[in-house]
């Protein structure tokens, strides 16, 4: 089964969402992206036990930081799905794209 998701989504593969650091997300915003979301395994099904739970907490933290600097916490999100739920992956991609579209482009766009 081949599912299509919006072409504007750039996938960065990591071994586990637990690997994603606050700074990594911030750097992405610095490079001008409009939004970031993490696609982690279902809660309770992390191969490294708590990686996705930690990731969620970090996402919450980054939301606070983005609020502080005036970009809006909604530009970052954490989603959970299992490896077999390709459909959900596509659905979240769609959802996030919609959300970001409503928020408009990041005010941190480079090279303007």
């Amino acid at each position: 089964m081949r599912l299509s998701y919006p072409g504007n989504v750039k996938v960065v593969k990591v071994p586990c969402t637990g690997r994603v650091d606050v700074l990594l997300i911030l750097r992405a915003f610095e490079s001008g992206v409009d939004g970031v979301y993490l696609a982690g395994c279902l809660e309770g099904e992390c191969h490294f036990l708590r990686g996705n739970l930690r990731a969620r907490r970090r996402v919450e933290y980054v939301k606070g930081l983005l609020e502080e600097v005036g970009l809006g916490g909604n530009r970052v999100e954490m989603f959970n799905m299992s490896a077999s739920q390709g459909q959900r992956f596509a659905q979240f991609a769609q959802e996030m794209t919609e959300r970001i579209r409503l928020l408009g482009p990041s005010p941190v766009k480079k090279g303007e």
């Binding site: 606050v22 700074l23 911030l26 750097r27 915003f29 610095e30 930081l65 983005l66 502080e68 600097v69 005036g70 970009l71 005010p107 941190v108 480079k110």
Partner: peptide
């Protein structure tokens, strides 16, 4: 070092914006 990185990033995001 890490917190320095985070605050620096916040400042850059803010001032760029």
């Amino acid at each position: 070092e890490r917190e320095v990185g985070v605050l620096a990033s916040e400042l850059r995001l803010y001032w760029t914006k």
